[in-house]
């Protein structure tokens, strides 16, 4: 959710990238939760979660360090 605000289009009002992640947060959480619950192959599960963590964490980290501005 946090990283979404960095890549989602702003739209004319320049707020879509801020509001849409807030609205979608429960849905994103539920998708991740049920994916973890239903995935049969542990290896694929770990890889997917690691990838998600790295991509999101990297974007958030880069934003906090000011590398994206």
């Amino acid at each position: 959710m946090a990283a979404m605000s960095l890549w989602l289009p702003e739209g004319d009002a320049k707020i879509n990238n801020l509001i849409v992640p807030l609205v979608l947060f429960p849905l994103i959480w539920a998708c991740v939760f049920f994916y973890v619950l239903l995935e049969r192959k542990p290896k694929r599960l770990y890889l997917t979660m690691l990838l998600l963590f790295l991509v999101n964490g990297g974007l958030v980290g880069a934003s906090i360090m000011g590398w994206l501005s």
Partner: peptide, 21 residues
């Protein structure tokens, strides 16, 4: 879905978005 949005939007979501954006 809507209830979780209203609870988390200002208490958690907004501060997090403010940090990244």
């Amino acid at each position: 879905f809507t209830g979780a949005f209203f609870s988390f939007a200002t208490s958690l979501g907004l501060p997090v978005i403010a940090i990244t954006a």
